[in-house]
Amino acid sequence: MAGVVSFLTRRRGGDRWHWTDVATWVWLIGGLLIIFGPAVWLVLSSFKTPAALSAFPPSILPYVTQEVQVEGFDKPLPLYEVTLPDGTTAQMAEKRRVGVIAQMIDPKNPGEVVKVNIKDRKPVEMVEFATSNYTEPFLQFDFLRYLWNSVFVTVMATIITLIVNSMAAFALSKYKFKGRDLILLVIVGTLMVPLGVITVPLYSIISTLGLFNNLWGVILPTVATPTGVFLLRQYMLTIPDELIDAARMDKASEWQIYWRIVLPLSAPALAVLAIFSVVWRWNDFLWPLIVLSRSTAYTLQVGLNVYAGQLNVQWHYILAMTVVTMIPVVLVFVFLQRFITRGIATSGLK
């Protein structure tokens, strides 16, 4: 144990602790709480019953009141730890409650009713995960459809983004042609200006093309991302031109050069763009919100927002579906974060 402590408190060169070391660890632990705390809280809450969710102060774990099946009653009755007038305690089921007085019965002897002030009893609680929060939205609402819509948009947009952007990046990095510099300039120029600025006219174009309430209306405007072209082009510039020349001498057509030489060699950059594209498209909100007004076309993000915006917010479902929405991104984070962080550090793009 002492070894562990000395390992954890070990410092480079064996220096004694400086106040900055203390500050560092305060910052890191605080960060841990503030960053993972909300997410963990969300997950824990998502397993609570509506009753537990509305309780204040809230419990950390999802507790439910234990229930017991009693002869003569159709529904199971909640179980309480009751302090009887004689000072002893017993587990009894609640038959009925009138004001502050509850009528309690012994489950083994349902005939005898004991009247107890509700102050003198405590619910018997146990940890139980309300998985119905997860299953019911899929059955009752259209969440399965939203999920499918989101997957469709994400996968399609990413595939098209990769193809279209890699072709353009190939042309812009390996050919000299008239207008190339102009195109580059336009692309870099629009790198920073977001879709948000052109939503109004874009909406009219989508409508004209008949893509309103159509998932393709969500997909298409995003696939020619200047960021993607820029990222891939910068990477393709590092592929030696001699390789292209060699392939030409090897009777390769330009298309073969693209898919047999340049694409495989750009795999790392393509992977970074693919990961980004998946995260972007999965998380997209404003544009799908504008294009998709029919609930069968909602993506998860839009669907979630619509349900969260209703007057009678069903938090137990919302929280569970938020967790579902988070899952792909968490998976990406767990398995690919090294890749992503390196990609951002080297390209400075998001």
Partner: peptide
Amino acid sequence: AMFFFPVLLSPVV
């Protein structure tokens, strides 16, 4: 990685 985690979350989430 920890500090980066929220960046990936969707704005709705």
